[in-house]
Design a binder for these strands. Structure first.
Lengths: 179, 179
DNA sequence: GTCTATAGGCTGATAGAC
DNA sequence: GTCTATCAGCCTATAGAC
């Protein structure tokens, strides 16, 4: 039996935190309530996480890593199909949709984790992938509507089957880009 | 000289609150900081507003009223052009863009003000105006991307000239709808 | 690893003087 | 209308026993 790479309790804490955040929002999810849901006391959390900020950072990191990896991959390949790129982006946000929901429902958490600049960079890099390094305002708005829409649909239509949602969302986003 | 219909201090409080909320988010804008910015003490706020919730409600209400009025007007007129409807919606969000930004940066404030159901109703009513009473998932995603995009662009491109932004945003939203 | 107990600070809100 | 003083309640975080 392999030794678990991460503590099981830490994993349960993360899961409870994500649950509670989905229900009440980031700011409203206190360590007391998270601990209660796990069935331990608040100080016990501090054995697994140095601070509330570290816990949140650990929740967001997998999404951040995957988006960074995706963008690096897209930027290294010279030719792109817009639908392929947006599809890959949709898949990432969908895979991490609990975190995506958390970030979209309260973007201020990003600033608190010093990730505002990172996410702002994502927007510019995606615009560059779609329209080159100096997009016009018309192109910026289209990229904003398309990419923002991917996230919106990911977190809004949680009951729809994945394949159907993916197709419908990408159809809408590609129509926005005029492709 | 006409007596002012609303207290001047109350107006300064509202302005300071909106400023601070734009900078730090709703949850992070405390009454203490708002009072500080106005140049009065915290208890003095309570002479003008019964509670923090009442202050927030007063900020959001003008946007709520204008959207309700717009939707009622659109629903009462039998024939519609999509670009006209979206344009009218854009104008409302732009006119109240400080509040729009606040709501989009932290939608949970709506739930706290018991407005979540109201705003959810807006989404359904707009979808009905665009696609009839029972839109398919494909139509729902297109409406979501288009309408969400209007709000996103309103708060994101604050430096762009109004006319140019309006045209670019509506072009993108109408392309999303396939019109 | 988890507990009890507690420190220290911030919050929204109130009482009562001026 | 605004102030000082204060309250109760919540928060994050730590100390130290087991």
């Amino acid at each position: 039996m392999p030794r678990p790479r991460t503590s099981e309790t830490a994993e349960r804490i993360r899961a409870a935190a994500l649950e509670l955040i989905a229900e009440k929002g980031v700011q409203q999810a206190s360590l007391r309530e998270i601990a209660e849901r796990v069935g331990i006391t608040k100080p016990a959390l501090y054995y697994h996480f140095a601070s509330r900020e570290e816990l949140l950072r650990g929740l967001v990191q997998p999404l951040v890593d995957d988006v960074e990896e995706l963008l690096a991959r897209l930027e290294s390949a010279p030719s792109h199909d817009a639908r392929e790129m947006l599809g890959a982006y949709f898949d990432v946000t969908y895979r991490h949709r609990a975190i995506t929901k958390m970030v979209m429902q309260d973007p201020s958490v990003l600033a608190h984790l010093d990730l505002a600049a990172v996410v702002d960079g994502w927007r510019r890099r995606i615009q560059a992938l779609l329209f080159g390094p100096a997009p016009t305002l018309a192109q910026q708005t289209r990229a904003t509507v398309a990419v923002g829409g991917l996230g919106d649909c990911t977190v809004m239509f949680t009951d729809a089957p994945f394949d159907e949602l993916r197709r419908a969302t990408l159809d809408a986003a590609c129509a926005t880009l005029g492709r």
